[in-house]
Design a protein around this nucleic acid. Structure first.
Lengths: 339, 339
DNA sequence: TACACTGATGATACCGGTTGCATAACACAC
DNA sequence: GTGTGTTATGCAACCGGTATCATCAGTGTA
């Protein structure tokens, strides 16, 4: 394993020169640069990242925090996480940074762990899903001046910081827009996670788009459930009892959609003829049910990309003013809304 | 940000002593240790991982390789990956190592990337899903003497190395055992990914357990499909045309089960009364379909744990003889097999 | 010819730990 | 009192880079 001295000796130059070549210092003459590069290649030399980090006082990694209390929890949301992770990794890689995954499951030790990583110079910045974020964590991060970016609009906003999220409002609008265009008239909204920010935003989009089309916003058509299939089914059944009943429903996620579909089937109605259904999130399950589900597709990969870009900016300039980035949603039309 | 010198000065000892305390060197007297520890705490001192790594010539991270050609690929298998990752992280964390995620999507640059990470002392070992493994990669890894562990029984075995996998044979046996106990008589096997090692092993378990119960192995009941819902449905329909038809089926995964269920419904049969169904993999979807699916649960978290343990051993002693670790499957009984 | 300036390179002090070797104190044996 | 061993600690070289400052050759200018 050769080091910079070996290369310098072999090239007949000083280590400074080799270092300059490695870091694209413009002061190096063309000939010297070419020559040193050649020797580097011949030696198959790769600079030691720890020596470099020690010298520059910069870590070459960014941490993505996760929080799994129960290792057996098995949610579709993990598919989100997966894609976000890829988005982040891709951007970091291009910037010669690596991505480390850190589980902050135990809240008591999490602060200490974060400390160890940052103070120990293992990581330079942190990306945090909003679900993992706590006021306490924010305090630690800001106190330690650790650059961080949050994924998902935060509930806590005591201090300003960077975050990325899906444009949930736009998603709500797209859903309504599509249903109206497909000639559905009475559109219900069946959200999950009552009180959540994203549900609120989607609903706002729903309202504005209805209004924009001069259609009434009937509060009776707006429902919420716990996000589970059974709860969604019950709530959908209730909506179907209304007079007149809705002829379309926007569901908060794929599982809610399953519940809604069950209620619709039990009522003897047919999708999409009697009632249209459109779902937020685009999990593989959307293509496996019958009819296949029209979805508001959430580009989570792009969310990861944006998060990574934000953290890069922040690490380059920790005092930069804080930014927010919203990722556009898109609609994936399938059978459940094709009359 | 205090360093070891500050701590040494404050404690009135040499840096060697502080270092020894940090590394639990037994030569340090009780009093000195206590005193230095106190100063460390007071200063909130955390050793610089890069300086330590530079000095010890050891990286403090393990890489988990992934390979996503298409960022939009959205498979349930990613849920597996997610849990495996947690298992790995958990073990690494306890051993003061961090987990870095590396995408080797571009096969041309992947070797070089791996090189940079290992030669550049960013990582100490590598964990590789068998799907990402190529003969070329194995060559690079062994040539560079990089400790690595494979997740999933490898197809290539030119060189011996460590790997972990689910005990697929046991899974096949458990499925058959359960179905027989529940009084199903004619058990079909509908596998996915023809030619794959895991399908082969499960099938072997299926055969042995039938034989063990003195039941005939009817080759006509053994089918394969491409793993998709449509293909599974067609294949299941074919199986149902046999005389006599099967009264139970073991499906290779949850999606194949959906296809099978569709074929069964179209034939006018009822699950579990007319026909029992049991599926490999336990995704959230298994509890969302009706009837809910009895599954052979694959403890992927544990697979991650084992992989991490293997890589730890290997890094501690790179010349250790190679090991294989098989993770037990377990059965999750739900409605689809309760007569 | 002397002087200033610029472009290219070298010498070397860091960065913050670890660790082999030296040393000092002390106990015990002879 | 000298020798031997053990235990606890310090000194300083080293890990492999980076970056500051010094140096030096070459060029332009008065």
């Amino acid at each position: 394993m050769s080091n910079i001295k070996d290369v310098a000796k072999a090239a007949g130059v000083s280590t400074s020169t080799v270092s300059r070549v490695l870091n694209n210092n413009p002061l190096i003459s063309f000939e010297t640069r070419e020559h040193v590069m050649k020797v580097i290649r011949e030696h198959n030399y790769v600079p030691n990242s720890m020596a470099r980090g020690l010298s520059t006082q910069k870590a070459s990694a960014v941490a993505l925090l996760v929080n799994i209390e129960d290792k057996d929890t098995d949610s579709f949301d993990n598919l989100f996480f997966h894609k976000i992770m890829y988005g982040i990794e891709n951007v970091l890689y291009k910037n010669d940074l690596s991505l480390v995954i850190s589980n902050l499951s135990n809240s008591r030790s999490s602060k200490e762990r974060l400390n160890r990583m940052v103070q120990g110079k293992q990581i330079q910045g942190v990306i945090i899903p909003t679900l993992v974020l706590t006021p306490d964590l924010i305090k630690t991060l800001t106190a330690q001046k650790i650059p961080f970016v949050v994924i998902g609009e935060p509930e806590y906003t005591t201090v300003p910081f960077d975050w990325v999220d899906i444009n949930n409002m736009q998603g709500g609008q797209q859903a309504v827009q599509h249903l109206i265009e497909t000639d559905y008239k009475r559109i219900a909204f069946l959200g999950g996670e009552p009180g959540s920010l994203f549900n609120h935003k989607r609903l706002a989009g729903y309202r504005t788009m209805l209004t924009q089309h001069n259609m009434p916003v009937d509060e009776a058509l707006i429902a919420e459930c716990d996000g589970g299939k059974a709860g969604a089914c019950a709530e959908m059944a209730r909506l179907l009892e209304l007079t007149p009943p809705p002829d379309a429903v926007i569901c908060g996620n794929n599982i809610i959609s399953l519940g809604a579909m069950k209620a619709i089937a039990e009522k003897g109605l047919t999708i999409p003829r009697d009632i249209g259904i459109i779902s937020f999130d685009n999990y593989p399950i959307a293509e496996l049910v019958e009819p296949t589900l029209t979805t508001i597709d959430i580009n989570v990969y792009e969310m990861g990309v944006e998060a990574a870009k934000l953290i890069l900016k922040l690490m380059a300039n920790p005092s930069a003013h804080h930014q927010v980035s919203l990722i556009s949603t898109s609609i994936q039309v399938r059978e459940s809304t094709i009359k």
